[in-house]
Nucleic acid binder design. Structure first.
Lengths: 334, 334
DNA sequence: CTGTTAGCGCCTTCAA
DNA sequence: TTGAAGGCGCTAACAG
């Protein structure tokens, strides 16, 4: 059932090293021998054992992925992108799904990755200096995706969250909006997610722009975004005329529930999202597109470079974003 | 940087076997020795190399996951569920993302999993007898999730697709609907996805029920579900009063676009989904809930049992579904 | 171009 | 309770 190089060697009448070479460096083996070996290998259902290669070469052929515990639209794209590059090079994934702060603490304390991954990819996490140090102590390359860290990653690719949110703000201001709200996720832990930069980017630009009032409103985890939105709209005489939400999926409740309470989009309220995820086009949501699948593929290539001792052409990349204009934004009514 | 059992042994003044035992069978080592070893291991940043253990034990500590190339809501839950059980037992994932038919053919021809996974988990695939045979030839346990196969899996967990769709039909019929349409995904290859059973289940029950007309309509991959729906409604004098769609996400376009053309849900048309995925509650979609995360966790436990030579308590499990009544279904208007 | 051999890091008899 | 030694399957010198 399980043939090894020895079995193949014996049956093909060659030595084990020839078998090994026939697979790893075919150019060193004569055409005829190689064909013979490959044929026998096939007959015997042989294929190279990654564990053995790993042991011999001192690699693990495993990539650790540190990401949020819930695989949302973004994380799913990240996995797809990583896999599209890494799978064919023989790499598998160790998925460290971090849901709670305790898990996070445990991860950084125990570093279970030690000696069991060739690289670690950090997605959408902000790391503290301490955490970055711990990671580096493992002695393997660390690649960040949308992960800002005071320390340095060996490589990284991220969108410019600040610039991205400001594009949306400028779009709204150009339409004539002067009172804008931003609904963001109240972080469970202070350093949780890198996208928190959007909040500060939003606030800053609104402050700078003459006559523009920007209000950042925290949505507690588990709270309903629509309730928060309506509360905001009803709690002041001059409510915002536009609401930016942290990510596209938050806009769904707004689209469905606001009209029932007499608030039409975009007539009474403009709404913007973030991500350009699956249904954004469907519902006509103005948003900022990022391409996490592509970002992850790039991150994977950089990781491979670093693992193999090559220097990636670029080590720190800013990924492009694009404003997607749709029907959820319009000029405010007089 | 990379300490091995030898380093730990030397520094702790014991033999390598003692170090090994301190980790794998602590009960065989005296309290004092064990503490000493663990302490030194910590100082040296030691942790057991999975590659070496794998080689020694003849396992791989990898699980192959065969699934669709796009990680949708369902696949993401599957990954979460598998990882929740398998991660802590030292298992990583080899993700075989099958997008095209050629990829599928290549997979079954080359069987790259050979000797590089301890089990294979097949999610949402229908396998041909040939494919099942090929899989079995690898000599590792095969566990199916929502995967129906003429051959046998070593273990499986699936919902009853036929029963599930029929619950929805009966719900609609009880409300008074007599003309019902079912929008299903036209399979790219005849054996593609197991959920095709829903179509036959739908058609069968409608045929059986007196006075009920069921129409199954194929939606081509990439086609817009809303266009298909409106076409259906306008192409006959007595159009359906209810539409069942293949999965929740297809309902989103209906909710958004139908009202613009004067079709209100549920007043003019009842709509049902399938899955109870994230936004279903938000938009008030009547649907059937399945719990893929739980199913995957169960599948993972069965896989572990089979890998370790244990017999799972149940080998073939039918997972529960539940009708989720919401506001997208109502009695048809006279 | 091909064969021989040592050893990657660990576990597991077997012996003490 | 601990130690010594072989070998899991493969690759990379080194030798021929």
């Amino acid at each position: 059932m399980k043939a090894s190089v020895n079995d193949v060697a014996e049956r093909a009448g060659v030595s084990v090293s020839t078998v090994s070479r026939a697979f790893t460096r075919p150019e060193l083996v004569s055409e005829r021998t190689r064909k013979k070996v490959l044929q026998v290998a096939d007959e015997l259902n042989f294929s190279v054992s990654r564990s053995a290669v790993a042991l011999k070469r001192g690699q693990t052929f495993r990539i650790a992925l540190l990401a949020g515990g819930h695989i949302d639209w973004f994380s799913a794209r990240i996995l797809e992108g990583l896999n599209s590059v890494l799978h064919d090079t023989g790499y598998d994934f160790s998925i460290y799904a971090i849901t709670h702060d305790e898990e996070r603490a445990r991860f950084f304390e125990q570093l279970p990755v030690r000696r069991n991954a060739d690289a670690i990819i950090v997605s959408s996490f902000n790391l503290s200096p301490d955490e970055t140090d711990r990671l580096h102590a493992m002695g393997i390359p660390i690649v960040g995706i949308n992960a800002v860290s005071p320390g340095e990653f060996d490589a990284s690719i991220s969108i410019d969250d600040t610039a991205a949110i400001q594009i949306l703000v400028r779009h709204l201001v150009a339409l004539g909006h002067r009172r804008i709200a931003y609904l963001y996720e109240e972080a469970i832990s202070p350093l949780r997610f890198s996208s928190h930069q959007r909040v500060t980017g939003f606030t800053q630009l609104c402050d700078e722009l003459d006559g523009v009032t920007g209000t950042a409103i925290a949505v507690r985890h588990g709270d309903d975004c629509a309730n928060v939105a309506v509360t905001t709209l009803l709690s002041q005489p001059n409510p915002p005329t536009a609401i930016c939400v942290h990510q596209d999926s938050w806009a769904i409740p707004l689209f469905f529930r606001l009209p029932r309470y007499g608030i039409r989009i975009p007539d009474d309220l403009s709404v913007t999202g973030f991500d350009d995820s699956d249904f954004a086009e469907e519902v006509g949501l103005t948003t900022v597109r990022q391409l996490p699948r592509d970002m992850a593929a790039t991150a994977a290539r950089m990781a491979l470079d670093l693992i193999n001792g090559r220097t990636p052409e670029h080590r720190h990349i800013t990924a492009p974003v694009q404003l997607m204009l749709r029907s959820s934004t319009a000029a405010p009514r007089a």
